[in-house]
Amino acid sequence: MSLQTASVTGGTSSETMLKLKQFMSNRGAVLGLVIVMTLIVVALFAPMIAPYDPQMMGAGRRLQPPSFAYPFGTDEFGRDLYSRVIYGSRLTLLIAAIAVGIALAVGLTIGLIGGYAGGWTERVVMRLVDVVFSFTETLIALAAVAILGPSLKNAMIAVGIATMPFYARICYSTVLVEKNKPYFEATVAAGAGHARILFLHLLPNILPTMVVVATLGVSTAILAAAGLSFLGLGAQPPSPEWGWMLSAGRDYFSRAPWMMIVPGVAIAITVLGFNLLGDGVREILDPRQTNRR
C-alpha cells in the first residue's frame, strides 16, 4: 500500500468525506489548520486589524512595555510591535509562498525528468542534486546570498534554491516507485507516448506526495528565511520581517525583552502550525501512517 491507493483528488465524494473526517478527528491537524487559516486572514486584512501604521515612529513612546494601547509593547523607535507583527505575517507568507514555489517548481521538474528519463540523464541530474543536497540548506542559502547580495528578495530566492534538492529527491524517488508499479508498464504496453505517461499518469500520482512535502517545506522555508534575516542577510530595516525584528530586539533585551520574545513566538507558532498541518495531511494521504493513532 502506498499513497496512491488512498486518493483524495481522485476519489469519490464518499471517500473524500472519510478522509475529511479522519483529518478532523486529528486534533493536532485541526489546530494546525486553525493557526494557518488565522495567519492567512491576519495577513489579508492587516490594514484593518492593525491599530497603527507599522512604520509610525514616536519619540515619546520608545520601548514601552505591553499595555492596553500597545498590546505587544513598542520598539526603540516607538513603533507599535503588535501592528508590526501583523504586517510581518504578510512577509512571512510571501517568503513561504515564493521560496516553496521556486523549490517545488524546480524540484518537481528535475525529479520528474531524472526519474522518468533514466540512463545518463538520470545519473548526471540526480548526482548533481545529491551534491547540492549534501551541503545542507543553511550553507547553500548563505552561498546564494553571498552571490546575490543581502535583501529580502534574494533571501527568498536563496531559500528556494537551498531547499530545492530535497523536493527533487523526494519527487525522484516517488517517480521511481511509480515506475515500478504495474500500471506504469501497462500504460507503456498500451502504446502511450511520453506526454500521456508524464502528465496523465505520473503527475497525478506524485502530486499528493509533493503536496505533503510542500506543506512541511513551508516550515523549513520560514525558519531558514528568518535565520538569514536574523543574520542581517535577508530583510533590511525598517522591514517588519520577524527574523529581522528579533535580531533588532536583542540589543534591548534587558530593557525591553518583549522586542525579542514577540517575533520569536510569532515564528514558532507559525512554524508549528504548518508542521501540524503537514503531519495531518501526510497522515490522510499515506495509509502506512494512519494506523499509528
Binding site: T5, G10, E185, G191
Partner: peptide, 30 residues
C-alpha cells in the same frame, strides 16, 4: 507504438495494473 495495437498485455496484479487516479471508463478507453 503502432505495433502495440496488435498485442496487449494483462498483468498478474490487477490491483496495481490500473492507474488508481484515473476513472475506469477512461482507463478502458485509453
Amino acid at each position: 507504438r503502432k505495433s502495440r495495437k496488435q498485442m496487449q498485455m494483462i498483468f498478474q496484479d490487477p490491483y496495481g495494473a490500473l492507474d488508481p487516479r484515473m476513472r475506469v471508463d477512461r482507463l478502458v478507453a485509453e
